[in-house]
Design a protein around this nucleic acid. Sequence first.
DNA 1: TTGTAAGCGTTATCAA
DNA 2: TTGATAACGCTTACAA
Lengths: 330, 330
Amino acid sequence: MSDVARLAGVSKMTVSNVINNRPGVSDQVRHRVLEAIRQSGYRVNVSARTLKSGRTGVIGLAVPEIDRPYFGQLAAHVIDQARQRGFHVAIEQTGAAAAGEIDAIAHSRTLHFDGLILSAVELDRTEDQRLPDADYPIVMLGEQDFGGRFDHVAMPNEEGTKAATAHLIDRGCRRIAIITGNSLDGVNVVTRRYRGYLAALTERGLDADPALLFTLDAMTLDEGRAAAHRLADSGREVDGVVAVTDTVAQGVLRGLADRGLRVPDDIRLVGFDDIPESKFMVPSLSTVAPDHRWMAAKAVELVTRRVRAPLRQPGEYTAPFELLLRESTR
Amino acid sequence: MSDVARLAGVSKMTVSNVINNRPGVSDQVRHRVLEAIRQSGYRVNVSARTLKSGRTGVIGLAVPEIDRPYFGQLAAHVIDQARQRGFHVAIEQTGAAAAGEIDAIAHSRTLHFDGLILSAVELDRTEDQRLPDADYPIVMLGEQDFGGRFDHVAMPNEEGTKAATAHLIDRGCRRIAIITGNSLDGVNVVTRRYRGYLAALTERGLDADPALLFTLDAMTLDEGRAAAHRLADSGREVDGVVAVTDTVAQGVLRGLADRGLRVPDDIRLVGFDDIPESKFMVPSLSTVAPDHRWMAAKAVELVTRRVRAPLRQPGEYTAPFELLLRESTR
DNA sequence: TTGTAAGCGTTATCAA
DNA sequence: TTGATAACGCTTACAA
């Protein structure tokens, strides 16, 4: 910067003013400075600016694993939205563990990210004492409930699963299984989707059979497949399956194929998320499609707003959704 | 830091020495300082450290789109490897456009990333004049050829596709189509994989029929599906298909299903990449599986090494691979 | 409209 | 073994 100033015959301050488009610089001087910048190949040092301003221009995004389609899609949208507001995104993987999620928060502060979007799947309000003070801009994205302590962008978990289950019933299914996570105690995604499932059954006068609840240790392709094997091998009569996510549904689809069960002929299947692959599966997957772009946009809007106004009252926002009817429930 | 120093009754410099585990601090003083740090809740300011050292501890990773399974997987591995070496990763999406790839380089320098891993799919050696000086640590990952100007971690494109095609021939296929990108002129992934396909045909004494080459505008699910439709509607007799990537193969699988063609009964299909979904597709997909973890580890090793020694001679490295035989070629 | 001085929080250097 | 000083590159506050 000093070099540029010398080249243009002005002070560093004037160079700074030109760079930041501040008013009060004569056109002539502005021109000389811009020319000097061009000649010298000068580029601002972001670290210095950061040190002075206390802002890094970086938002952290913490997800369980970036290579799960849902989180990849989420990241893509968040990166796009952040860029539009002049922020960069650093990605942290929590490994779907509470410790990883706590680490992500600590890390985010240490590295002076301006804010953090945390897609928590383990952490919840019961871990109160491990959560940070509310003075750091954190937006919770997805599922867990923190009792209004943070801004929260939620999925339409209950409504979505209810609509999906009702759709199976409309198609004539009467023995509907649900394949979901094993953490049915807390207030989390698993519980909420389960409640949506129960609500639909009740509303249509069907009984919920506890034997038709199959639980997973993780929301993965492998676990979904294994659950489908258990379902098929249990000998229970089942004509419909609600899977907790599309990724799990993809595993289920594969697991049913392993056992010679055809979808939708023998069993109808519905998922949740509308990952990009869903419409290309064989058969294509009916699913609850929350508006991912909306969620990413909301989350980024909330963090960036909170960067400017840290002490606003946290808000709760639920994404709109659509039920997509495809071959798996035809 | 001043506060800590005052609390411990020492100078800032001593605090710095303690924080960085530098020798020459008495145990007694070290203890006092650590206690003062605990009490005050002090945390280093990374920006200041960055300003002083010129290093940000961040590596950029530029990929076409983070929500394609292959790149998600790649990112997951790169983030893990980088963390093990004390680096963070910021992800940039290039949109699979040459301009986006150039931007990523410029961006990476502006933000003072310590280095950049660029998964270029458009840029190549012909764009010489737009490429930066070699003084900035860039590692090219994947496909394009830059004539030895950058460190380059390559896929086993030719060998892998050759092995995949030979496998189809072994299974009895005689009319083997290839579905790939449309940039068959440069030295890129598409050309190399095409050469591998041709090599296998030649070696086994089969003629390459130009009518069996189907090209795509992008390596996406949608394009793969559309190509399968064109293939089925062409009326040409085809008993095997080599798809340029697993994602394209997934689209092809769907497209063939749309036309009532069964895999592997009517047509055998093989992909490239071994994305996590491949083994869960219906039918499961035979594919060329490059060692992704190896590639990520190599790339991170190369950037971080180049951060320390910017002027080393660039090297060329090709990942090992395995041919995975699954249902789609049974 | 332009310039000067001070300071953001570290660390390298050298002196004590 | 410890400390004083200057410097990294920028911007805020104020003076000219």
